[in-house]
Design a protein around this nucleic acid. Structure first.
Lengths: 235, 235
DNA sequence: TATTTTTATTATGTCATACATAATGCATAA
DNA sequence: TTATGCATTATGTATGACATAATAAAAATA
């Protein structure tokens, strides 16, 4: 028993760096709610003093928290705890060129999931003004023969508006993060070739359902609308 | 006109720090695909020399990239470009105590969206073995009178399995990130009181639909299954 | 010769110190 | 009373030194 616990210690040689430890300690402090949003954390020198490490280490640990969006540091005032804008932060590191192919494909799928799943929120929160705007957008929906870029632009406008209507800012940020990925995947040879661009339920059709239908109908219609994308993923 | 462009310059005093600039420069390097995954980037001292700043600044910029998961640095070898595990990284910074209430509520909603939206992927990728496992899980589905914690555990097991079946690792990571938030929101006074815990479509019912039904049926059933959550959000 | 051991090298990790810079509050002058 | 300038303070940047780990080269051993 004593041997075992000794071996536990023995096996788990702490390979983490000093900065790792300090970071963990600070994060723990936040998690334990010893500190709340708006609170300022001790000065770098004080922390260095109290934890018995150099200011360099402290700075690096704080920097990590800052990059994660947990704190913001201002000159003179020190660092204060903030409520992180998660997706804002990852958006910066989401770079289609760097993400591996599997992840890219999965993010492509994620968009499809979101647009089908958010039906209830659209119906719950839509206003008459929203419907008007949607109608205005679809009024110049390009047919398949139109310029490609114009199609893309229209796509983004329409679907973006739907996210907006859903009234969930986090969701919207998520979409913004996914946008470049979606475009990238669409063009890279990552998916199967698009055999034939069929038009299923159109944007116009979707608007009609939003106006007169139900979430159930909308989900199915949206699934149908996205069929071209699904068919490139499946079978 | 000349005045205007002058004023443009005048208004936009560059307030960014040295590190900001270096970071931007490095990220740009990655985005331009001058460098690909696996490539090593120049040594700290070389960068410092070439960009005309101190090693301190370089280190801090590199550190940011590291926290964002864009690079990994090893002793002697230098830093190499990596494909970042986005959600793994932010999971660390997702702390219900720190996130503001609006974001928390929105993340709660996000889970509902995902579980309804992922129907097609479940049906596309499920195997007979999966169905067996689902059946095993629901075979000891607790009724409402059971111990609360046991219910939670069962919930996580069942829904977690669904995510797994959907076969999208990014989605699963996303769920893992959402889990603590969901639990937290569920308990904090953030939502309306749960008037009466009604049982709608049960887990057992969902499995039956997975086995014999269609994505369309499943979406509606899942929506129904989650009614207790929706009712705390709406009206 | 082949294989192990030792040694040297190199690049990141940590420390210490000094100074620059921006934000804040207080004192001073108009 | 309102600006203006000044001192203070905490972060930002620079520099130099040494520790440590990973690698490669050299030496020693079988």
């Amino acid at each position: 028993m004593a041997i075992n616990s000794l071996m536990d210690d023995f096996n788990s040689v702490d390979t983490s760096s000093l900065v790792d430890k300090v970071e963990a300690k600070l994060v723990q402090l936040l998690k334990d709610q010893k500190l709340n949003v708006g609170d300022t954390i001790p000065k770098e020198l004080e922390l260095a003093d109290r934890l018995g490490v150099s200011r360099t280490v402290i700075r690096e640990a704080l920097l990590r928290l800052r990059v994660m969006g947990l704190i913001e540091s201002k000159k003179k005032k020190g660092a204060v705890i903030t409520s992180p804008d998660i997706f804002g932060i990852i958006s910066k590191s989401v770079n289609p060129h760097i993400l591996d192919q599997t992840t890219l494909k999965e993010m492509f799928e994620l968009r499809l999931i979101l647009e089908i799943g958010m039906a209830d929120f659209i119906f719950q929160r839509i206003t008459p003004a929203d419907i008007q705007e949607l109608k205005k957008i679809v009024s110049n929906e390009p047919d398949a023969t139109q310029d490609y870029l114009f199609n893309i632009e229209h796509e983004i406008a329409f679907h973006g508006k739907l996210y907006e209507i859903a009234g969930n800012e986090t969701l919207k940020k998520f979409q913004r993060m996914l946008l470049p990925v979606f475009d990238y995947v669409h063009h890279s040879g990552l998916l199967k070739k698009q055999v034939a661009v069929k038009r299923y339920v159109s944007h116009k059709g979707l608007v009609e359902i939003i106006e007169n239908g139900s979430p159930e109908l909308f989900r199915n219609a949206m699934r149908n609308h996205l069929e071209n994308h699904f068919s490139r993923l499946f079978e």
